[in-house]
Computed example of a mutant assay.
Amino acid sequence: MSRPASFVPPPGARAYSLRTARGEFAVVDAPVAAGVEPKGVALLLPGFTGSKEDFNPLHVPLAQRGYRTVAVDGRGQYETGGPENDESAYAQAELARDVLAQAEALDTPVHLLGHSLGGQISRAAVLLDHAPFRSLTLMASGPAHISVSQQQRVKLLRDALGTMSMADVWVAMRAMEAPEETETARLDGGLDDREDLRRRWIATRPAQLLATGRQLCVEPDRVGELAALSLPFHVLSGALDDTWPVTLLDEMAVRLRARRTVVDGAEHSPNTDQPLPTARALADFWDGAEEQAQ
């Protein structure tokens, strides 16, 4: 589970519901910094069990580089509504159409970034229609299904959700947490941090987790389809990743003829592990994509 540095929007950012043709989506919207020339807009999609707050550490450094950033809770994630038990509402094609609606509501071409599961949803959206997008960044998001070890973890979660409430699953997950992870969480954020994480977990719709967890375990390789599009691509990851091996991400970048960034000192969540070098790499890539679009 990702651990945002804070659930409070950074200075200058605004939390609100973005109205789209497919409903309302909770967002954190950070404008370009005062006195900085605007360059573009980025739409940021979180990963499995994540939320828009996972991108809070990126907003300020990207605003200083001239980019407005809009991080969104997808359907059924945290503060965006969705059916409790209808998994069909969270089919990948449905979530991809939500992304297209979000881009349309922003009313400008956007740089699309998806973290982990969000990367695969982003890919599906771009394959449906790449016209609304200036570029696509896949952050810690691989070419197909997740690793076998992560599939096993997802299966445990799906089995638990079949018989337990979200509150009971939360208690069970905390009981299974390694002592050093518990201590790290305490030092990083204390009781308030854990309560924020619990509130996010409880608010997430079980059907969303069941449906997207299954997707992560069976996702086919669609890199060839993506590579056929005339769009700038960026593959960004930490130096370590147990969800998709880094070597697999290297190979995907070659197949996409994509810019490749490996963030030292980061693992599966470069956005929270090493936000400043991550933001710098993103802005550098987007600068190039903006020049290419002109």
Rank of each mutant, 00 (worst) to 15 (best):
G114Y: 08
S141N: 12
R134F: 01
A101L: 04
P132A: 11
V148M: 11
L95C: 08
I146T: 09
S116Y: 07
R123C: 03
H145W: 01
T108A: 15
L106K: 00
F133A: 11
L100E: 10
L127A: 11
A140S: 15
G114C: 10
R97P: 00
T108R: 15
A131M: 08
L117T: 00
L138S: 01
Q92K: 06
S122G: 13
R134L: 11
L127I: 15
T137W: 06
V110T: 12
A140L: 04
V148N: 06
D107Q: 12
D107E: 11
V148R: 08
S122Y: 01
L117W: 01
R97G: 02
V126E: 03
A105C: 09
V99P: 08
V99L: 10
D107R: 13
A131D: 13
A96C: 06
H145V: 02
T137D: 12
S141E: 07
T137C: 14
A131P: 02
A101I: 04
H130E: 14
L127T: 13
A124P: 06
S141W: 09
L95Q: 14
Q92H: 12
L95M: 15
H145G: 03
V99H: 14
A101V: 01
L136G: 12
A144S: 15
L128D: 00
A144P: 00
S116A: 13
R123V: 05
M139K: 02
Q151S: 14
P143H: 09
D98N: 07
L128C: 08
G118P: 01
D107M: 05
L112D: 14
A124N: 10
E104H: 04
L113F: 04
M139N: 02
Q151F: 07
S149G: 09
Q151G: 15
